[in-house]
Simulated scan of single mutants.
Amino acid sequence: MDVQIVLFDGFDPLDVLGPYEVLHLGGGLAGGAVSVELVSAEGARAVPSGLPAVSLTASARLDPAAADLVVVPGAAGSLSLDPTEEGSVASLLARAGRGPLGPALREAVERPDTVVATVCGGSLLVAWGGLADGRPLVTHDRGRDLEGTAARPVEARVVDDGDLVSAGNVTCGLDLALYLLEREIGPQVAHAVEQVIRLERRGTVWRSAA
C-alpha cells in the first residue's frame, strides 16, 4: 500500500506525524507492505506547519494516480472557523484549498482506486471543496456540524465510507491509521503496532456498510 501524506502551509504536525509513524511502523512489521511519503501539491519543498518551530519536508509532489491512500491533515492555528481571520484554522484550510491542492484532492477523491483519509480539519478541507457532498464525515468538534458543506455529519472517532475515511480531533489520527492498517493489511499487523506504541483504540468505527 503506497501512502502519501499531504503537507500544506499551516498543517497540524500531529495530524501528520501520528498517522505517519503508525503506517510506517506497520509497513516495517508487514515486511514492506506499506510505504509512506510526505508530499505537497507543489512538489518537494520545506513546508511550514501552523506551529512556529515546526516544519517538515515534502519529498515529492502529490500524485493521486500513484497512491493507494492519500492522508489529508488539518491545520494548526486559532480555533476560529472564520476564514477571514488571519491565522485561524479556517483561513489556513481555505487558503490551501484555493491553491493547487484543491484540484489534486478532487482527483484523489474521484479516483476509484484511491482511498482518501482525513484527520481533524482535513475533513473540512475536503468538504468545503464539495468533495464529500452527501457523504458521512467527522471532523474537529468546533466544526462538527460541517456548516457550509453538503456532507453528512457523524459523531464518531473514525467514520468509514469506503474510499473516504475520516477522523475527528487530532489524536483520532492514530486510531485512523491503525484502523486503515487493520482494514487494508490485516488485524495482526494493526495489533502488533498497537503493542509497540502501547495504544488501545477507543470507540467503534462508524461504517456506512457492513
Rank of each mutant, 00 (worst) to 15 (best):
D141N: 10
D145E: 15
G99K: 12
A90R: 09
P112W: 03
R98D: 15
R95P: 10
A117M: 11
L101M: 12
G130M: 06
L125W: 06
G102P: 11
P136S: 06
G129E: 12
R95W: 03
G130A: 06
L101C: 12
A94C: 03
G102M: 13
G143R: 01
P136W: 02
W128M: 08
V109E: 01
V126R: 14
A132C: 04
V109G: 02
G102L: 12
R98G: 15
G129C: 06
A104V: 10
L131T: 06
G97F: 09
G143Q: 03
G122D: 00
G122L: 03
A132M: 02
G121V: 01
R144W: 05
H140A: 14
G130F: 04
E110A: 11
A96V: 09
L92C: 10
A117F: 09
G97C: 13
H140C: 06
V126K: 13
R135F: 03
R111D: 01
D133Y: 02
E110T: 09
E107Q: 15
T118G: 10
L137D: 00
A104C: 05
A90P: 13
L137R: 09
P100K: 04
L124H: 12
E110P: 02
P103F: 07
G121R: 05
G97I: 08
V115P: 01
A127E: 00
A96W: 06
R95N: 12
R106L: 04
P100N: 10
G143P: 02
S123H: 08
L125F: 08
L105G: 07
L131G: 08
A90Q: 04
C120D: 09
L125N: 13
G129N: 14
T114G: 01
R111A: 14
A104E: 05
G121M: 02
R106V: 02
L92Y: 06
R144S: 15
C120M: 09
L101D: 10
P112L: 01
A90S: 12
R142C: 08
G134L: 14
